[in-house]
Design a protein around this nucleic acid. Sequence first.
DNA 1: GGCGATTGGTTTCATATGAAACTATATTGC
DNA 2: GCAATATAGTTTCATATGAAACCAATCGCC
Lengths: 160, 160
Amino acid sequence: MRNSAAAAKREARLDLDRFLPYRLSVLSNRVSGAIAKAYSDRFGLSIPEWRVMAVLGGTPSLAAREVAERTAMDKVQVSRAVDSLMRARRVARTADAADGRILRLSLTPKGRAIYDEVVPLALHLEDVFLSALSPDERRQFDALLGKLARQAHLLGGETK
Amino acid sequence: MRNSAAAAKREARLDLDRFLPYRLSVLSNRVSGAIAKAYSDRFGLSIPEWRVMAVLGGTPSLAAREVAERTAMDKVQVSRAVDSLMRARRVARTADAADGRILRLSLTPKGRAIYDEVVPLALHLEDVFLSALSPDERRQFDALLGKLARQAHLLGGETK
DNA sequence: GGCGATTGGTTTCATATGAAACTATATTGC
DNA sequence: GCAATATAGTTTCATATGAAACCAATCGCC
């Protein structure tokens, strides 16, 4: 009895099915994957591309750096996603009047049209997943996710 | 007023900060990243390598395919992780007596020693994250995560 | 007003990843 | 018992990714 702590330590097991990082990772990949498949099939958008469009749809004229901050992507990823979105004429950019380093990004009409189709689709699929929870449970989950995100933010610093 | 549904559709916005897949992805990456950094720094283990070791620590003599199933990894990933773990003498394998295609995997003593160090470390870090929640909230979160995982499983089929 | 340190953004390079092809063994149906 | 098919695992190839180097342009400050 007295050695139970030491014994527990030596015999420690880790059950992946109960381990938070593993559970989060599997769930996240399943949810993101299912939604990504929908917009990838229809519009050939990758996840980074869609994230850039999502943020520009809500707030146009952002600098690439601001897009990176809001999407938790790094600037290389943003640069590449913007590059391919521009080649597809879904995003356009203009020089900033005041600061020559900055290029301001916005959806083109073509990009906006896609955004307007993808948003309801994404929200619908989110809703299908969340239909496993009652309205009350959704609120709980929302709150708990928020607490954990804040905690992770405090501890981690880094994102990705 | 009467057109509000159509209007809502046309004007649909997506706020990434409230969008489930995005929130899960950021949280998952932060949590996994922080824990992965710990065992990567100390033992040079990648996430796939650690997952393979984690499952073999709890259940030895698994075939690679079984490891893949339990870790939600694909067989290529498992094959490569096993390859590097074997080169580091952390995992060994033996031919299956009954089926010549199968190679049964287990931790070596060296691998076991690492497992015995990483498990308490991983559990400790998990606990640090979860310390943002009360015991009651943890139980809630556990249950809600379970419901969503089942839902995702039903809908998705695929994992990763 | 001009030089060193910063910042926005892109490119390079080395590594990680997944899909599909491949090898070898087992199983099934005849 | 043997062809057709399926399964375990590895390799190949093409693409995705991140860290670090890089090229402006701006800011700080003397």
